[in-house]
Design a protein around this nucleic acid. Structure first.
Length: 576
RNA sequence: CGGGAUGUGGCUCAGCCUGGUAGAGCGCUGCGUUCGGGACGCAGAGACCGCUGGUUCAAAUCCAGUCAUCCCGACCA
């Protein structure tokens, strides 16, 4: 492709509303333009990068035995009512009516549609297993879209679904997808990590997220330094320390703590460690008041709590609700005599006694709290979030936190949708069985952004060769019609014959502009054709990743280029 | 939904406080000189100053409303 004919308007300055580096660079490089909040157009170069990512994913999906389909973006509300998600999904589901007043929504995901598609046709165990996927535009009306392509409302996703006759089959499908994902992300040249993740109250036994490691990631992952364990913070298990059962303590004692709301304030006022305080968190779980207790220096893990309760909606109680539940303003709740339907304490609280806590009265706390004696616990459970001081739950080694961008998620759905939508088949015995489902997503457009978050410098993008819109760029420093530009055309044509996707910068621009744009757009291999080099009988080659420059002889150029290309790709950890 | 900020040629922004001819840089067009890391000169084109209403002799500027965009939060008692 010749740059002179390409619609790829580059910008010297990033638009004022772009914050993150991938958004700025994609815009500056003329790859995307924002239409409105969280919604972007892809220009030729951006679309090319997007398609490269999608094609690699397709190849790995097909190789793993999945088949590509394409489902509608507009979905009928009735189907969502059937699965029960019309009521549950919330405002992220963009709903509207057609001219007849019938309900529709823009698909944020396709479990309903795929299950509907399969249930009508698959009636026998002979037709299973089945694995279908699509690459399609999703719409989720995000509460706050941000970070350009990283969290858009409209985005391109690869979503796949497997149908198996039993749990063992589902397990095999899951593993197949897990491996396909590993391959795809490796081939894309990204640094990533598969981590254990929360599958939600509805999911099956477990799930994994694929995280691209980058400081700008929205997720935090806990990674063991000693073993293979890695998990999303919201999922990471906490290893309980060994300790003798604590002795009981003297009776409760109320103390005045005027205006002391937070753990820090109370700890400071009473001159005790925050770890000696029991923090009482009041929530509304599907409309019912519940409470969770964690140590004052710990964080409640809402995801764990929600899963434990098995509810759909869990929100922190409002000040009014806090007053009603505890009989005191916010900041003075304690576990004694709360008006809640469930009262859970974090496992760690088993290890101590003689706690301080709110007194359920304004401006007062209690001392000498014994949870077994003074509170009616529903039970103990793991409720807190892991910290970097906790040991690895597997091997006891050191845990470190890293930031990651979630680009893929595989999880077992089990029977949830097959049950709700009645997707059944007959087994060998002629007995009706529910299909066991799995679901597998990859954020295709997010990968493009994540890739840039991970690979950039002050000059612009450093695309891994498999993601780059063009693997190589030929920068012609000549003028139209002269010897230099003729040579550039020649090299460009040669690279085409070698099967290297190449862009030729034949624009009537000064060299500086071409160098700057080449770096900005992130062409992994840059070949400069200029008078200087030609006089020496060489083409100057630059590896965008390292910035390293080398000279490839015009004599035997094809071989020299091939060797250099292998070297560049090896630097990215890529084979072939 | 709460808090904060911003809307002025295609882009980045100044002007607004203190009302009176709409500015700069980049980009764009033409001509000339340049030509290996975002060149220079000259001449140009391009603006319902987000929208609606109000105050005023007069509004980009003051007031009210509204829309849009961005940031923080929407959880730790």
């Amino acid at each position: 492709m010749k740059l002179s004919k390409m619609y790829a308007p580059t910008l010297k300055e990033a638009p004022g509303d772009a914050e993150v580096v991938s958004h700025k660079l994609l815009t500056r490089a003329g790859m995307i333009r924002k239409l409105t909040s969280g919604i972007y157009s892809y220009l030729p170069l951006g679309l090319k990068a997007l398609n490269k990512v999608a094609d690699i994913i397709r190849e790995e999906m097909n190789r793993a035995g999945a088949q590509e389909v394409l489902m509608p973006m507009v979905q009928p509300g009735d189907l969502w009512r059937e699965s029960g998600r019309w009521e549950v999904y919330g405002k992220e589901l963009l709903r509207f009516e057609d001219r007849h007043g019938r309900d529709y929504c823009l698909g944020p995901t396709h479990e309903e549609v795929i299950t509907d598609l399969v249930r009508g046709e698959v009636k026998s165990y002979r037709q299973l297993p089945l694995n279908l996927y699509q690459v399609q535009t999703k719409f989720r009306d995000e509460i706050r879209p941000r970070f350009g392509l990283m969290r858009g409302r409209e985005f391109v996703m690869k979503d796949g679904y497997s149908f198996d006759r039993d749990e063992a089959g589902a397990e095999a499908s899951y593993r197949g997808m897990y491996e396909a994902y590993q391959k795809a992300f490796s081939r894309l040249g990204m640094r990533f990590r598969a981590v254990e993740a929360d599958s939600g109250p509805i999911g099956g036994s477990y799930s994994h997220e694929f995280m691209v490691l980058a400081d700008t990631g929205e997720d935090t992952i806990a990674v063991c330094q000693g073993c293979e364990y890695a998990a999303n913070l919201e999922k990471a298990e906490v290893k309980l320390a060994e300790a003798p059962t604590p002795a009981s303590c003297p009776a409760l004692e109320q103390v005045s703590t005027p205006g002391m709301h937070t753990v820090e304030e109370v700890a400071g006022f009473l001159k005790i460690a925050p770890a000696r305080i029991v923090k009482t968190l009041l929530y509304m779980a599907d409309g019912q008041p519940v409470a969770a207790l964690v140590r004052g220096d710990r964080e409640l893990n809402e995801v764990k709590f929600k899963n434990l309760l098995g509810v759909i909606d869990l929100t922190l109680a409002t000040p009014e609700q806090v007053q009603a539940i505890s009989g005191a303003p916010v900041g003075f709740a304690g576990p004694q005599g709360l008006k809640v339907t469930k009262l859970y304490a974090d496992n760690e609280l088993k290890l101590g006694n003689d706690w301080a806590a709110g007194a359920n009265a304004a401006d007062a706390h209690v001392l000498r709290l014994d949870l077994t004696r003074d509170a009616k616990l529903t039970g103990y459970a793991e409720l807190r979030t892991i910290t970097q001081d906790d040991p690895c739950p597997r091997c006891g080694g050191r845990i470190a936190f890293t930031k990651g961008i979630e680009v893929g998620h595989v999880f077992k759905l089990g029977l949830k949708y097959s049950k709700a939508l009645n997707a059944k088949f007959l087994d060998e015995a002629g007995k009706e069985q529910l299909m066991v489902m799995g679901c597998y997503g990859i954020g295709v457009s997010r990968i493009v952004a994540a890739c840039i978050e991970q690979n950039h410098d002050a000059d612009g993008i450093r695309f891994p060769p498999p993601v780059a819109p063009f693997e190589a760029a030929v920068l012609s420093l000549g003028k139209a019609g002269d010897e230099v530009s003729a040579k550039a055309e020649e090299i460009y044509a040669l690279l085409g014959r070698l099967g290297v996707e190449t862009v030729l910068d034949d624009r009537d621009e000064r060299p500086g502009v071409k160098f700057k744009d080449a770096d900005l757009c992130g062409w992994p291999m840059q070949l400069t054709i200029g008078g200087k080099g030609l006089a020496e009988g060489v083409v100057e080659a630059k590896d965008r990743r390292t910035g390293e420059k080398s000279k490839l002889p015009l004599d035997g150029f094809a071989e020299a280029f091939a060797a250099w290309r292998r070297q560049v790709r090896a630097g990215w950890g890529l084979e072939d």
